[in-house]
């Protein structure tokens, strides 16, 4: 069973709808066993990093997610929580990706909200998608570029649009909110 991790009050309905529309069944859950036994995990999220991490560790979900061996996809805050640390609430995160999450400078319009294009480096998740494609973003913090960055976006500076490492995948943008091409990414993930 594909499991969408539930850990805050964010809009999970859109991710769930997208998975269903692509012809897959899924379950929204915060149950440890269910997550552990999932065939794939989607780790979405909007919200605040420190309270999200606190909730995950209280439930013991942090360890389960970190040690998960099947494909897992983080989205937006999900991506950020998969990094080492986040400046948001000075949070120690899951340390899956070897990079840090920083805040966009105060002199820019924040949040970075809207459609922005990506430059694809070497990505499994993005499949046949082309660079310059636009995806929908809404975030005030970003993951710095690292060896695991497989696509880059620019908002006054380059940042990680997509991160990939072993069975772990993550997008800073919202594929579930990025119309047909966003759905294509979810489809790529579900077919892994």
């Amino acid at each position: 069973m594909i499991v969408i991790v539930k850990y805050n009050g964010g809009n999970i309905a859109s991710v769930e709808n997208a998975v269903n529309k692509l012809g897959y069944e899924c379950k929204v859950s915060d149950d440890l066993k269910t997550i552990q036994n999932a065939s794939k995990i989607i780790f979405p999220g909007v919200g605040e990093a420190s309270s999200a991490m606190k909730y995950l560790s209280e439930k013991g979900m942090d360890v389960v997610l970190k040690n998960y061996k099947k494909p897992m996809l983080g989205i937006c805050l999900g991506l950020q929580l998969m990094c080492e640390t986040s400046e948001e609430g000075n949070t120690v995160c899951l340390k899956i990706f070897n990079t840090k999450v920083k805040r966009f400078p105060e002199n820019e319009i924040v949040p970075h909200m809207g459609w922005n294009s990506i430059e694809i480096l070497n990505s499994t998740l993005l499949g046949n998608l082309k660079s310059k494609t636009d995806f929908y973003y809404v975030h005030s913090y970003f993951a710095e570029i690292c060896d695991e960055t497989t696509a880059i976006s620019f908002y006054n500076q380059p940042f990680s649009a997509v991160l990939e490492k072993d069975n772990f995948y993550a997008t800073q943008f919202h594929p579930e909110k990025s119309a047909d091409l966003g759905y294509q990414i979810l489809k790529n993930f579900l077919e892994l």
Partner: peptide
């Protein structure tokens, strides 16, 4: 809102 969410895939 539920109906809209089911039908559209943009924010």
């Amino acid at each position: 809102v539920r109906k809209i969410n089911k039908e559209i895939s943009i924010p």
